[in-house]
């Protein structure tokens, strides 16, 4: 019997680490990976709350269906985002996020 709040605090830890690495990392692929880490942390809260809801009505699985859709969208987003990264690398020859500033000036 683990309190549900432990799961939620674990998700908060993972989300904060994801935010930190999104801000501090300088490689565009790693920045993209930290978005995946944040999505995973949010998925954990969805599953934990779905579990809590199942204590009330065992047939309720809507939270898990949310996670299913998040996974589908994350997979599509990863494919398109990595394609964009490849095409940026072809034109700029760099992965450093400080040098990818075409839209800034």
């Amino acid at each position: 019997m683990v309190p549900i709040s432990y799961y939620l605090i674990l998700a908060a830890v993972l989300f904060s680490i994801g935010v930190l690495s999104f801000l501090l990392k300088r490689n565009v692929v790693t920045v993209f990976m930290s978005i995946e880490l944040m999505l995973n942390a949010v998925n954990l809260t969805f599953v934990a709350f779905a579990h809590r809801w199942q204590a009330v009505s065992p047939q309720a699985v809507s939270g898990q269906i949310f996670v299913f859709f998040v996974m589908v969208v994350a997979a599509a987003e990863a494919a398109v985002g990595l394609a964009i990264i490849i095409s940026i690398f072809r034109t700029r020859q760099t992965l450093n996020i400080d040098q990818i500033n075409l839209m800034k000036n």
């Binding site: 019997m1 683990v2 309190p3 549900i4 709040s5 799961y7 939620l8 605090i9 908060a12 934990a48 579990h51 809590r52 199942q54 204590a55 065992p58």
Partner: peptide, 17 residues
Amino acid sequence: FLSESKTLGSSNLGGYL
């Protein structure tokens, strides 16, 4: 999460089904 810990309850290994 900690202040709502009592309301959130605890988990049941393997779910409720």
